[in-house]
């Protein structure tokens, strides 16, 4: 009998050593996070302070000088708002929404998946039917429908995205937990009279969490894209808190007249950020896939 291939989280070094692209992705993720956190400190202007905007600076292409002598490195929009500043602030909103939604969705999913596996019976049936109901709709459509019902807003977008995430997580965790429960260490714990609650937290949770960790970056990039899509469609974040998706939508009308930078630049930033997360996600998934590891 050979040791079963249990995916174990081997640590960052083992996953990323010798893989240049994913390492670059990891660095990029850190960079975007830093930019988002430091936006108020490094942005040339506060793009939502009307006092700082000058309508005379409107629609400047990148690298032009503004009225007050600064250089608008990435150009300005129709209101004379500096695109670089708008992008830095937009990054904050995009990341905030994605991270909070993923954290909320995954926490709920893990707990419900574990409880469902451990208790079985009607709790399991109820949770799984709710999962079926949720996952039978693609995430973006589900979110559009929810937002159509509840209206828009940062908090509502977060809830709508989290609803798409919890169900996937719960399904994965439940499946893993059910196989783990067949393993003898759970039987040994039961024989030792350990309470169900402790079995769930100390035995089942740490052994069922790996697939969730592996899927985490993918969930985050998915949430970033979903939020951008919703905001682009006008059912996401409000105009007072524009994310990258909303900035792209605002520039949309100028695209056909050749003023590409207003929507292309936030778009490029969005793509770069998602790409960084996805190369990391790919690497983590490949690493966790036992079929791709060197095999005897």
């Amino acid at each position: 009998m050979t040791e079963p291939q249990v995916p174990r989280f081997a640590g960052w070094r083992a996953i990323f050593r010798g893989h240049a692209l994913p390492t670059a992705g990891l660095v990029g993720m850190g960079l975007f996070l830093a930019l988002a956190l430091l936006a108020p400190a490094i942005a040339p202007q506060n793009p939502y302070d009307q006092m700082q905007l000058n309508i005379m600076d409107g629609l400047l292409p990148p690298m032009t000088q503004t009225m007050d002598g600064r250089i608008a490195y990435l150009g300005t929009d129709s209101l004379g708002r500096d695109i670089l500043s708008a992008v830095l602030y937009g990054l904050r909103i995009s990341l905030l929404v994605a991270v909070v939604a993923v954290a909320a969705g995954i926490t709920a999913g893990v707990l419900l998946g574990l409880v469902s596996a451990l208790r079985g019976g009607w709790i399991d049936a109820l949770v799984m039917r709710a999962v079926d109901l949720t996952v039978s709709f693609p995430g973006v459509l589900l979110a559009i429908m929810l937002l159509a019902i509840f209206g828009t807003g940062v908090d509502k977008v977060i809830v709508a995205l989290a609803i798409g995430i919890w169900a996937q997580t719960a399904r994965v965790v439940r499946a893993v937990a059910l196989t783990e429960m067949q393993r003898d260490y759970i039987a040994a714990a039961r024989l030792g009279g350990i309470s169900e609650w402790r079995i769930m937290l100390h035995f089942l949770l740490p052994n069922s969490i790996t697939p969730v960790l592996v899927l985490l970056p993918m969930a985050i990039s998915g949430a970033i894209v979903a939020e951008a899509t919703l905001s682009f469609l006008g059912v996401g974040v409000p105009i007072t808190q524009p994310s990258l998706g909303l900035l792209i939508a605002n520039g949309n009308e100028y695209l056909l007249s050749g003023k590409w930078w207003i929507s292309m630049i936030p778009g490029l930033v969005l793509v770069a950020m998602v790409l960084c997360v996805n190369v990391v996600a790919d690497r983590m998934r490949d690493h966790a896939n036992p079929f791709l590891r060197a095999k005897d």
């Binding site: 899509t229 792209i248 056909l256 793509v271 997360v277």
Partner: peptide, 13 residues
């Protein structure tokens, strides 16, 4: 990684 809506804009552009 390219959001579908932005890719659409790119194609139009």
């Amino acid at each position: 990684s390219i959001p579908n809506f932005w890719q659409a804009l790119l194609l139009i552009l």
